[in-house]
Design a protein around this nucleic acid. Sequence first.
DNA 1: ATGTTCTTGTGATTCACTTCACAAGCGGGA
DNA 2: TCCCGCTTGTGAAGTGAATCACAAGAACAT
Lengths: 215, 215
Amino acid sequence: MARKTSDSTVRRLSRYLRRLRKLDAQDRKVVSSRELAETTGTTAAQVRKDLSHFGSFGKRGQGYSVGDLRVHLEEILGLDHRWTVAVLGIGKIGSALLGYGYFTERGFDIAAAFDSDPSKIGSELGGVRIQPLNALEEAFREHRISIAIIATPVEAAQDAASRAVSAGARAILNFAPIKLSLPEGVALREMDVTLELEGLCYLVTEASTPADGPE
Amino acid sequence: MARKTSDSTVRRLSRYLRRLRKLDAQDRKVVSSRELAETTGTTAAQVRKDLSHFGSFGKRGQGYSVGDLRVHLEEILGLDHRWTVAVLGIGKIGSALLGYGYFTERGFDIAAAFDSDPSKIGSELGGVRIQPLNALEEAFREHRISIAIIATPVEAAQDAASRAVSAGARAILNFAPIKLSLPEGVALREMDVTLELEGLCYLVTEASTPADGPE
DNA sequence: ATGTTCTTGTGATTCACTTCACAAGCGGGA
DNA sequence: TCCCGCTTGTGAAGTGAATCACAAGAACAT
Ligand SMILES: NC(=O)c1ccc[n+]([C@@H]2O[C@H](COP(=O)([O-])OP(=O)(O)OC[C@H]3O[C@@H](n4cnc5c(N)ncnc54)[C@H](O)[C@@H]3O)[C@@H](O)[C@H]2O)c1
Ligand SMILES: NC(=O)c1ccc[n+]([C@@H]2O[C@H](COP(=O)([O-])OP(=O)(O)OC[C@H]3O[C@@H](n4cnc5c(N)ncnc54)[C@H](O)[C@@H]3O)[C@@H](O)[C@H]2O)c1
């Protein structure tokens, strides 16, 4: 079964799942592609195409069973089990992540936190003890950590990421504004606030250029 | 001049600019599309296509002048002047943003911060005083704030965003995991950590399905 | 001048994602 | 049983972005 699902499809699937979990909590039994589309910001046809890529989960004339589709999506996305995560760099962003309660209920456990600053080591945040970098390899092995979140200063980010990968990380979520180079096969996503802000600037600027009138 | 630049192009332009600023600081005079591509994670042809959409800034056989191209990109992206930003919700994420020194050197000034918690109001963080929500309209007017960053709990996000828009915000950067509905013409970008994490889970899961062998 | 080398700018092409449109199918009512 | 309203699943068509490939041009050496 040769998958080749695009990033944008995966992002939408995540959104559908988020919605389905909410509907499930509200005891809704079925949902149509139209409703799912409206509440996640896409089109009904897109929803059906996305899902049809993995199987046919709906009933014609009726819609999708909220519970069933939820389970299917969790399986497709690999969210049918919990994931163990490590955070590297417990500064402003790292601390915020350790204190973010929502991760747990979404299936992510922050199992370890690392910092190079001796004065931070040993203290606890969000129930996680901050460890020195030399404890990294063992912690990754012990907790079978597969995802590392990089929240170090930009100069340290590449080293931190490489080390996490050597220790067994198979995916990196990077908060530092730098292009990481990682070995083939390691997944990478970026959270780049400045990049997004600059994108907004472009849109605002473009929208207010008086140069071109309507049409 | 009918622009219709795609999001992905704008994102790349931001990356080029980031690189150019660094090269400029290092006193590099010229750069080729090839080098720019390699250091930003794309292809030379893509770099040239992106730029050619706005004009021809290079010299054949030589490459691009770092300084000139930098200025052009700043102008294209609307980064040839400073932008004033407000943060709504000064909790874990909001505090991290107020303390993020890098914004200033990238042309963004956080001019105002708002929170609904009376115990936070009046205190200062990163040189910005936290204000009550009822000061929002005046502050937006006074500082001509056009970008609002939403860092409130998810339940408060829609209200906060709507209020910012009414007060004059033309762009929203949203950290809350919810689909905001905003009037036409207001730009929106999302920072959704959980969505990115879930995307990573999919990639890791997919990469390790033993089902399909190589090719 | 002429040739050589290098790199841009850009039509043409390929590729991938989105939208369209409709047959297939389900449930309910008469 | 047959019909009707509704929604899915999916080929086909449409759209837009990425890649290719090469002529045009710039500098420099001879
Ligand atoms: N604060 C923000 O709002 C914000 C916004 C966008 C991006 N970022 C990026 O996120 C990253 C972290 O930002 P921050 O504001 O939390 O920085 P910070 O300075 O508050 O924290 C960085 C932490 O990393 C630790 N550290 C340094 N070197 C390390 C190493 N080699 N291994 C492990 N830990 C190490 C430091 O001791 C410190 O505790 C930076 O790359 C920054 O550019 C931050
Ligand atoms: N902490 C994280 O690492 C993290 C990660 C991803 C996403 N988020 C999202 O970012 C948002 C903020 O998260 P946080 O962890 O900083 O939360 P938080 O609870 O630490 O802070 C929220 C702040 O918003 C304030 N607030 C509440 N209602 C408000 C209103 N109507 N107007 C203005 N301020 C209001 C609260 O007083 C509080 O100070 C949430 O939506 C969260 O889901 C947080």
